[in-house]
């Protein structure tokens, strides 16, 4: 009996360790980014690092200002949200409330396919279709630009926005809608005046999730944004926080390499903020 008890405790211990492993991973990632990211910031100076507008890591007198990357990431994400959220939101209202069951199945399948397409494939199509298209349409020398990245990102965040919004809209109690219908509102009015406001926390969560996806995307953006460390311009070649890390990592060394880790740390802080916001909205929508 005693042996049995010891064995059960042993098994319990193993499962406890397995359970805590996710926490361990989060700590590992946080710790590594802080340890790797702090030295360069201390050497360069936090003010100079965050607000200097010039990134010239390989120049003879190197300059490590990441303001262009931060602004590009912020503008790029904002642009993607402006374009992606209306389409995603309206699609989700259609799917959750208006669509007949058969159409719903087909469109949902399409949306999940959109979510599954690898980011390099988006990047490739962007490179071959979007970039030349923008060049011809706006008569600029190179179409690889912030604008191209914004369009790619807007498409890539659609599935997250649609799926989370649908979940939120479906969780609205049927009584709310029935009450509105009984008062004489048409179904469409009910969905927009009653269901959407009732689901607003969930829809906010969908937008925040989209922000997180857009700011963290690297490969697709790298293939269409031109990758020059300029201050952001809609039709200029730009570099994001993610692509700044990815594009120089393979040949970097010394302080330049450390600075790349610092960029990753800044990106990580952005993501943690977004995660906190996401949790806030998700918790509120559950209540």
């Amino acid at each position: 009996m005693k042996k049995q008890k010891a064995f059960e405790n042993f098994v319990h211990g193993i499962f406890l360790i397995l359970g805590l492993i996710t926490v361990g991973f989060v700590l590992l990632i946080t710790l590594y980014l802080i340890i790797a990211g702090i030295p360069a910031i201390r050497k360069i100076g936090i003010w100079d690092f965050l607000f200097n507008t010039k990134w010239a890591s390989t120049a003879s007198e190197p300059s490590y200002g990441i303001l262009p990357f931060i602004l590009t990431s912020v503008y790029g994400t904002a642009g993607a949200i402006v374009l992606g959220v209306p389409v995603g939101f309206l699609t989700s209202v259609y799917l959750a409330k208006l669509a007949p069951a058969k159409i719903r199945t087909v469109v949902s399948g399409a949306v999940s396919l959109l979510a599954g397409i690898p980011s390099v494939v988006y990047g490739l199509v962007g490179m071959m279709v979007l970039v030349p298209g923008i060049r011809k349409l706006f008569h600029i020398p190179d179409g690889a630009s912030l604008f191209a990245a914004i369009i790619v990102l807007a498409i890539m965040i659609l599935p997250s926005i649609i799926n989370v919004s649908i979940t939120a809209l479906e969780a609205v109690p049927k009584e709310y809608e029935d009450a509105s219908l009984a008062l004489g509102a048409t179904p469409v009015e009910t969905y927009f005046r009653v269901s959407v406001p009732a689901a607003k926390s969930g829809i906010a969560a969908a937008v925040v999730l989209g922000v997180g996806r857009a700011i963290g995307e690297a490969m697709a953006v790298m293939m269409v944004s031109g990758n020059a460390p300029n201050m952001p311009e809609l039709f200029g070649s730009v570099r994001f926080l993610t692509t700044a890390v990815a594009s120089e990592m393979s040949y970097s060394s010394g302080l330049q390499r450390q600075a790349l880790f610092s960029i990753a740390l800044v990106l990580f802080l952005f993501i943690m903020l977004i995660n906190a916001a996401l949790n806030f909205f998700l918790k509120r929508s559950k209540e």
Binding site: V26, L33, L267
Partner: peptide
């Protein structure tokens, strides 16, 4: 922790 992990971008995973 699990939610945090699913929100971290893959480029950061690559780096760590």
């Amino acid at each position: 922790a699990a939610e945090t992990l699913s929100g971290i971008p893959s480029i950061i995973y690559g780096l760590v």
